[in-house]
Each structure stands twice: as structure tokens, then as C-alpha cells.
Simulated scan of single mutants.
Amino acid sequence: MPPTPPTWPFPKFNLRVEDLAHPGAQHFFAAIRNPGTSAEHDSDNALEALRYAVLQSFIWLYAVPECAPTNVQQILLVMRPMDGVAYTFGSHTEKEIHFSLDHVWNQKDLSRARQEILGVLVHEVVHCYQHNGNGTAPGGFIEGVADYVRLHANLGPPHWRRAAPSRTDKWDAGYERTAYFLDWIDSASPFGEGTVRKMNAALVGDGVTWDNARVFETFTGEKVGALWRRYRVELGGEVVEESEETESEPRAATPVVVDETAPLL
């Protein structure tokens, strides 16, 4: 008898479309129904797309159902006309993802639109579940972890590239720049798969802050400046002297909104 599949703590999902006459609204539904380019992205409605996004967050940040957070009881997806792409906010138990119909409409090809919708949903759902040192983790790290999960879900947009950082690039620039760095730490470096998952787990608990968690030193044995320098050299960037890079941790961020996203775990 085959083993029982794991039971993940999925929340309740709701959908609100604020303007059904907007061309992005019908484009959204058509794109979701459009056959995916990969069986791993098999979903044909908004519910399945949201469940897929939650599952990716669970798999890449928590690995097993026993470790997945259970506090999120509801996720409301709001499709509406607005500038930008998407943002997430909410309470400890209820989250809202606001997604731009204008952005969806700008993805004219249905296959590309489908990939973008799923990719953005994965990124935003991560913000519903990731830990953040009680709001003290740098925004660049928070956004980098979200795109790290999107990267591992094979939903990166066409413009993403694993490029060598330049002299002026920073590890905590966020988004795909930080995502590729975290991916290197997690898989391409000697530190081993699961390092990012351990970093996330270390950023929850009473009294935990970015400064006292020291996730890079704790789980890699090195300061982030040294890691960034090695990453830069391995990817073919300019060789730098140690004196050219500080090895201090970045200044801890206050709970400001980054791309209008405020993780609340």
C-alpha cells in the first residue's frame, strides 16, 4: 500500500476581482486555464494556483508538514487595477495579496502570463509564511528569500540571470540578485542544501532579532561580506582585496515595507 501523502496546513482561500471589465481580469482567468509549459505547474484555476504557491513556500522553507506554520487561516487574493506588480499585508492569521490587473494585461502571451502569475503568487505567498526576526530582518533578505523560492519553483521571469556581481552590487539588493546568492549558499557552495531553510527557522521566536540570530555566521561559519566576495569571484566577477569589502552584517532594518510587502510572522 503506498504511503499516505503528507497533509499540509493549507489555509482558506478567497478571491476578489475589483473590475471584471478590466482586460487584465479576463486575461488572468484565461492564462490560469492555459496549459502550462511544465507538468510541475499544473493548475487550471485560481484555487489550484494559490494552493501551488503555498505548497512551494512550505516545501522550500519548511520541508515537512510538521514544520510548516499553522497560524495563517485565510489568504485573500485581490485582483485590481493598480501601479506596480503586487504586495502582501495582513494580520498573524489573515493575509491579503493585492495583484495588479494592469501587470497581468501587460503579459500578452498567455503562456508567459501564466508563468508570471504563478511566479508572482509564489513570491507573495512566501511573505505570508517566512520568518523575519520579529520585523528586524533586512528588506533585501526578505525579498531575496521570496525570489529564492520562486527560483526553485522554476518560475523566474525571462530577464533573470545568474550574473557575476559588479564591484558596486550588494548582497542584500534583494529580489533575484539576493535569490541567486542564497541559492549559491544553499546548493553550489560547500554549506549544503537546506541552509536557507535553517536561516528562516532561526528568525522566529520571542526576542529573536536579525542581529542576535546572526544567520550567516551560524549556518556557514563566515560573515556575509566574505561569502559575497567568494560568490563574486566564483561567478567571474572582479577579484577584490579583503580591504575593499566590509565583512560586517548589514544594519538591521526596521519593519518598513519593501515593494509594499510587510511579512508579519
Rank of each mutant, 00 (worst) to 15 (best):
P2F: 01
P2Q: 02
P5Y: 06
P5G: 04
L15V: 15
L15P: 00
L20K: 13
P23G: 03
H27M: 03
H27L: 05
H27T: 05
A31R: 08
G36E: 11
A39L: 15
E40A: 15
D42S: 12
N45S: 11
A49K: 00
R51F: 08
Y52M: 14
Y52S: 07
L55F: 15
Q56P: 03
I59A: 07
W60N: 08
Y62F: 15
P65G: 15
E66H: 10
E66G: 14
P69R: 05
N71K: 11
V72E: 02
Q74K: 06
L76S: 11
R80K: 13
T88C: 06
F89S: 10
F89H: 11
E94Q: 09
H98C: 05
F99R: 01
S100A: 01
V104S: 03
V104M: 02
D109W: 03
G119I: 02
G119S: 01
G119H: 01
L121M: 05
V122W: 01
C128D: 01
Y129G: 04
N132Y: 10
T136V: 04
P138Y: 06
P138H: 08
G139A: 12
A146K: 02
Y148D: 04
V149G: 02
H152W: 14
L155W: 04
G156I: 09
G156N: 14
P157F: 03
P157G: 12
P158Y: 13
R161M: 13
R161V: 15
A164K: 10
D172V: 08
A173N: 15
G174P: 10
D186C: 05
S189K: 07
S189I: 04
G192N: 05
E193N: 09
V196R: 00
V196W: 00
R197A: 07
R197G: 05
K198N: 09
A201W: 13
L203A: 09
L203T: 04
V204R: 10
F219A: 04
F219V: 06
T220H: 09
E222W: 10
G225Y: 08
W228R: 05
G236M: 07
E238F: 11
E241I: 03
E242H: 12
S243A: 15
E244Q: 12
S248L: 12
S248P: 00
E249Q: 09
E249S: 11
R251H: 08
R251P: 02
A252F: 04
T254W: 07
P255G: 02
T261K: 08
L264H: 12
